[in-house]
Design a binder for these strands. Structure first.
Lengths: 214, 214, 214, 214
DNA sequence: CATGAATGAGCGTTCATTCAT
DNA sequence: TATGAATGAACGCTCATTCAT
């Protein structure tokens, strides 16, 4: 009856993106905004529907239930992030450049769509039960894995310390990145202008690479 | 209505330090466990009551509502953490020692009470809306402030790079710490034995101080 | 959220006078019956839903909460009464006829729908705090005012004693009417047959007009 | 264990009123005030206890439960009223004097203790389920009966119309009295000064005796 | 007598989900 | 596809009542 609940991971190649129904898009985007604002548990399906200017029941036409909607939002956001990581990982440059590139990407997204970052950070990572079953967790692991890969490359080329555990390093780097952005999100770290945001980014990159020691 | 809902710091005489009804304790501890396991939204007051071996209504005798219970849990956990930070901050040693001490404290707590750390990390930090109003946010800021203070001291003594913004550094350090522990909590970073835990700790400390660069 | 909770007086076109969902009606009528039987505090939403043969949650689809449901019941009942009073007030006849007409109306309603009268009397008038805020109180005042108006007309035409305060007279009349009906409701005053009811009515009208004195 | 829950109807004769424990009194009086203010359903036992400056559980030492407390309040209030009615009924004077005396008594009480009248009127009479089982209803019937008796006497002496049904007349009279007082209670009928109160009283008496007709 | 901690049934309300149209 | 009325399980909170001291 409904082909609508089809795969969400259709490659962005020419010729098939038009099959994502417009309303489905609208719902997904609305969900990002609403989740970002009120959190997963703080918002109702009705809120999402209203924000998407769509009838109540239509949400259930495109998504099996609230959880699947959340998963879809996460998948969408993480896919973007993962793709960027993968591109960076596969690209040219030193490990330092790549790490800086990762940070740059996240901060850039923050500049243009802070609410998307908010969902990613405050909801995805932090979902209790969290980083739980389903694709969400795998995707998160993939992100860590990609960063760990960057680290491994750097170690192989002698650019990074060989005695650092890539997984731990990746987690630590992403954690620092995350809390720095969290700090901006909640206003603890000042980030009202673009300059301030860039300054924070450089600070964080510096910390990751050369540490605090004088 | 009831004196029970009073502040927990009523010194009525020598030795009864912090007179607090036994059952209140039990509820609070049960709440930590249950929150850790199912998350704030995933658990019901009935769960907490059952875990505390206490009648349903008694929870409401000691706490105005679910939110206040959560806040109390947070306050308790953070107070422990803040006190440890403050002690470390005020103590002797180089900035590096202090940062290592902070990490050591968190990892030690994790060894003996992982669920407490879980609540602290997965619920407190990550509560959407989160880091929100009330004491929770202030306490979080205080934690960041204390770490920033350690950084400042280290800079003053020439032990740490003077060009690092203490607040950003503090956020990044705590973030790295947090995601590393998160990784352990969710099993991404292996931490089944004490040795493994210590190894992760040393890795993270090393990253914070000397960075990744070779 | 739902257009259902709208005003009941939306004339969208000729002939759809007061479009109101069938189920809303059912709930409202059920509420009258249940309130009449058990009182506002004695009945649960579940009782109303069951009496209306409707799912629990549907009550909340049409009414914000229990209070609003009560207010709606009151509004409905009083509106009928007020309209009747107004028609009588504006009509022909002596003041005595009009007062008799008012009494006649109430006793007629009682004959066909005693429970409606019961709600009006035992719940509306007597709600503690009662005659309280909101439309309920105003409506009550309007009723008294209309009766007072009838009295004033009668005085102007010389049919009624000029030295009677219309407001006090109206209150007294309605009070006598009410307690007489109350007496029937609770069985103190015998009113099992239509003849008995009419007899009581005539008695009460007589008392209001010529008093007790021989 | 507890003789406290003893009969509440001890005659006020010399030598036994000192057996009414002071705290019991306090609770009873507090209950009158609290019921008057918030209604039976709107107040909690805790409210009564607090208003009486008495410990929570003590209420249950003197009264089996909330209902019995209400009944006791009613009994106390009605007893006063019934006694006054009985005294008037048994006294000298015409029926008109007696009716005036009844009204005078109620209005006098209102002047000194409006909250007591409020409870009597808004809670007793109007208790849904109302005028229900137990002593409350019997007492109410007794009051009506006594007034009806006054009417009967008057008819026997030729002072009052013989064709009036004493019970209906009594109900109507008390009803008029009640709504007039209700009107004062809720502010519909002005009664701020003693003069105004007396004026209302005379109006109501006049209406009962000679009616409205010119 | 007096206290107030402890108990738990009861109920109002929310909201994810289904379904008829 | 699209709509929103209808459903009912779930859960937070209240408060009358009991009981140990």
């Amino acid at each position: 009856m409904s082909r609508a609940r089809q795969s969400r991971t259709a490659p962005k190649g020419a010729g098939n993106e038009e099959f994502e129904p417009e309303k489905r898009r609208a719902i997904l985007h609305a969900a990002v905004r609403v989740f970002a604002e009120k959190g997963y548990h703080g918002c109702r399906i009705a809120d999402v529907a209203r924000a998407a200017n769509v009838a109540y029941g239509l949400v259930y036409h495109y998504f099996r239930n609230k959880d699947e909607l959340l998963e879809s939002v996460f998948a969408e956001q993480w896919t973007i992030f993962i793709n960027a990581l993968a591109a960076i990982d596969a690209g040219q440059g030193t490990a330092g450049d790549k790490i800086a590139g990762i940070f740059g990407f996240v901060f850039d997204v923050y500049k243009t769509a802070p609410s998307a970052v908010r969902v990613l950070i405050l909801e995805v990572t932090r979902t209790p039960q969290g980083l739980r079953a389903g694709s969400t967790r795998e995707t998160f692991e993939k992100a860590v894995g990609l960063v760990a890969d960057v680290v491994r490359q750097g170690q192989a080329r002698g650019e990074l310390r060989a005695d650092a555990d890539p997984i731990v390093a990746a987690a630590t780097i992403l954690g620092g990145l995350e809390l720095a952005v969290s700090g901006m999100v909640v206003g603890l770290v000042p980030a009202s202008t673009e300059e301030e945001i860039d300054r924070v980014k450089n600070q964080v990159v510096g910390l990751a690479l050369v540490g605090l020691r004088a």
